[in-house]
Amino acid sequence: MSENSKSNQIESIDATEAATSAAESTSTRPSVAPPVDIYENAEGYLVFADLPGVEGDAIDVRYEEGELSLSARRDLAAEGDPVAAEFRAVDFRRVFKIPEDVDAAAIDAEFENGVLQLRLPKAKAIQPRKINVRASA
């Protein structure tokens, strides 16, 4: 792998470390990293994250100084006595370092069927520009 492509990698920052910040230290809810897909083209990045059982208003997406952080709170209706439990109420958390500048104001988020979809357009300055060549008549 060339050095150039390496510097363009999106780094995942240890979510458990990030989640044990002061604000979360009193919480007994476990923090888990949701599975994520990240795609890129010349215009921007596309991020998908599986957040089953989360309400749309319990999702927090932040982009600051090249870091994209996702957090979401999942509360589960606790009806009856558990017979078998393979998942539980958790805080989903994931932080990524995005190598290129993103136009923070233009980030778009959508939540459907428990999947969060983020569009992060690259800052105009780094987007390839197509220059129209005028033909002189």
Binding site: D50, L51, P52, G53, L76, A78, E79, G80, D81, P82, V83, A84, A85, E86, F87, R88, N113, G114, V115
Partner: peptide
Amino acid sequence: EVWPRVNLADTKDAFILQAEIPGLG
């Protein structure tokens, strides 16, 4: 891993099963 993960609860009158199926309608 198993997929989807499920929870099963007993409310005396019924069983309630929950399954994580992100992306599926």
